[in-house]
Design a protein around this nucleic acid. Structure first.
Lengths: 206, 206
DNA sequence: CATTGTGAACGGGTTCACAGCA
DNA sequence: TGCTGTGAACCCGTTCACAATG
């Protein structure tokens, strides 16, 4: 157990452990080992044990880990025992897909509000949400205490909208826009960009 | 210049350099420095110079880099001067969004075919593509020499479909399914899973 | 006896700092 | 002078290997 600052790369693996454990649980399994979990994810057993050791001692020698217990601990560490409301900004095709996605449930998240600038979209329903005017953004985020946003606006608008989000109190942004965002460093930003990943893969193609 | 095997982590940064350079070019810029490029992406100048040095000497002392030339070189390294056809498997909401996405153009990719198992979807048009029966998968992939696939099927189907793709000759898979795929190691797999990234972010939230 | 937790060894990626050059 | 390319130093994450233990 190490009470100093945890390396970000360690934190980044915890959600993957949690995901695999959830699936094992759904398959009716009740216990596992670092070896088995690692095989499943493609990570060494030692790596998993070392990662977990940063946060406590969750296993039993000779036995391994109780799946429900480990899930519970990881959820607590990642702060996903609560449900975080998400502001979804951009109601295009991708925004639609995300708004209708059922996978957030039981993973610590729910879409709390959807925004767009297009007058044709404002007021319409997608995935059970009424699309709100961007003009309501700040107020809605503040009133609902939303801290996390998903950004699905065009590249050209991303920086400006991101700044508005930060202004409104958003602390973490998951951006689908293919542009690096320039924001205060206390804002935690992550990106999803399939082109980047595809180009990474083509390097290895014959 | 280092002719030995390039670390994967180096390769993974090249598409981001390319993306930033494209944007600079669109903004009318013609030259840049490792410093400026790094500031833009949030990477140290030394890191960028070291990364590029694995592949050649692309800059000029005192001057920096020619943007068109560096773009050209990176495109060649990443093999995206050609256009790779992509098999898109899964015509749900996400598949729709991807099929209609305009961002592949000029980045080395185009959707070549769309597949689904649902009889209601087969034959319908999305984003200008006719959705094909999964039964045609292998034949279509072979005939068109497709090597890259994007996987947007439900989690439960992902492993099985991925195996079919590999069987048909697919060499790289970008999977949106929230499951680790278990495939021969010569197949290069990458994942996009917003839940994983969101849970990573919540660790840092107050 | 299987499996954890962990100090120590290892390996490799990042940063440093400067020679070299336009 | 300004900025690249790079060997060397540094740092830090991963793997190793084993004592501890249910």
């Amino acid at each position: 157990m190490d009470s100093t600052l945890i390396p970000d790369i360690v934190v980044s693996r915890l959600p993957r452990y949690l995901q695999a454990l959830h699936r094992m649980q759904e398959e009716g399994q009740n216990a596992t080992s670092s070896q088995e979990l690692g095989d499943r994810i493609g990570i060494s057993a030692a790596q998993i044990r070392k990662d977990l050791s940063h946060f406590g001692e969750f296993g039993k020698q000779g036995t391994g880990y109780s799946i429900p217990y480990l899930i519970d601990q990881l959820q607590a560490i990642l702060k996903v025992k609560q449900v975080w409301g998400i502001a979804l900004v951009g109601a295009g095709d991708l925004g639609h897909a995300i708004a209708r996605y059922q996978g957030f449930t039981n993973r610590g998240f729910r879409i709390a509000a959807v925004f767009d600038v297009d007058p044709h979209k404002i007021g319409s329903q997608i995935g059970g949400f009424v699309v709100q005017d961007m003009a309501n953004l700040a107020q809605s985020i503040r009133e609902n205490g939303i801290k996390v946003a998903m950004l699905t606006v065009p590249a050209d608008a991303a920086q400006k909208v991101a700044e508005e989000l930060v202004q409104a109190g958003i602390q973490s942004i998951l951006s689908y826009a293919p542009v690096p965002l320039n924001l205060p460093e206390e804002v935690y930003v992550q990106y999803i960009d399939p082109i980047i990943q595809l180009q990474h893969m083509t390097y290895y193609l014959g």
